[in-house]
């Protein structure tokens, strides 16, 4: 990255004072809200329309397990915030340590999701073809899982770049933008966890 573009990437000379990449990420997340909004509302509408599906959600959900994995994802967001803050302060070592933590927690969450899907399919015969609920559940949580996986890839790429010396403290904005994405994916999970899992126990 040339010096000139580094200077620009901190919002200098932008009309709003917000960095271009950061503004772009905020706008993308606004658009992403509509993606998840559509998926979650499709699920909720079909749940309301068919209150008694063949496979009862409360029977198959293991709420303890999902709570644990949700907690881990939340904590990954905490580590992400620390990583961004470390980068801003120029503490490369701390940034790397925190980012490894985020990646690990993200992978644990994904592992839980793989286990959950596997369990549903093999123990309860609840597949993507099981009525409308199977379809909406797997597409929605699967899309969220893809977002987490992409987030892990982004963070891992940045981490590797930092070991190769290509990501320096001058690029702290790139880390902050990745952080924004990670927090958003986390917030979406909170909504899915409440509206899809917890609501079933009311």
């Amino acid at each position: 990255m040339s010096e000139a573009s580094v200077a620009v990437s901190h919002g200098d000379g932008s009309s709003t004072g917000i960095d271009n990449k950061k503004l772009m990420m905020w706008l993308f997340l606004g658009s992403d809200c509509m993606f998840f909004g559509t998926l979650i509302s499709t699920h909720l509408i079909y749940r309301k329309l068919y209150p008694n599906p063949e496979v009862s959600p409360t029977e198959i959900f293991s709420i303890d397990l999902t709570t644990a994995s949700s907690f881990i994802l939340l904590m990954s967001s905490f580590l992400m915030a620390l990583a961004v803050s470390a980068m801003h302060k120029g503490e490369m070592k701390s940034y790397r340590r925190m980012t490894w933590g985020v990646i690990l927690f993200g992978l644990i969450f994904l592992g839980f999701q793989v286990y959950e899907f596997n369990h549903f399919i093999h123990h309860y015969d609840f597949t993507i073809q099981s009525g409308t609920m199977g379809s909406t559940f797997y597409l929605m949580t699967g899309t969220h899982g893809c977002h987490v996986a992409i987030g892990v890839l982004i963070l891992l790429s940045q981490l590797i770049a930092s070991y190769k010396g290509k990501l320096t403290t001058a690029n702290s904005m790139d880390v902050e933008v990745a952080g924004l994405y990670w927090h958003f994916v986390d917030i979406v999970w909170i909504i899915i966890f409440s509206a899809v899992y917890l609501v079933e126990y009311l």
């Binding site: 509509m34 559509t38 068919y50 073809q129």
Partner: peptide
């Protein structure tokens, strides 16, 4: 995004046998 998700659901119906729009399975 609304179109993207609609197309995704339709694609899943066609390729993976989901039931978003399959009337016999409750799709609307």
């Amino acid at each position: 995004p609304a179109l993207t998700i609609a197309l995704l659901e339709l694609m899943f119906d066609r390729m993976f046998g989901t039931n978003f729009f399959r009337v016999s399975e409750g799709g609307q």
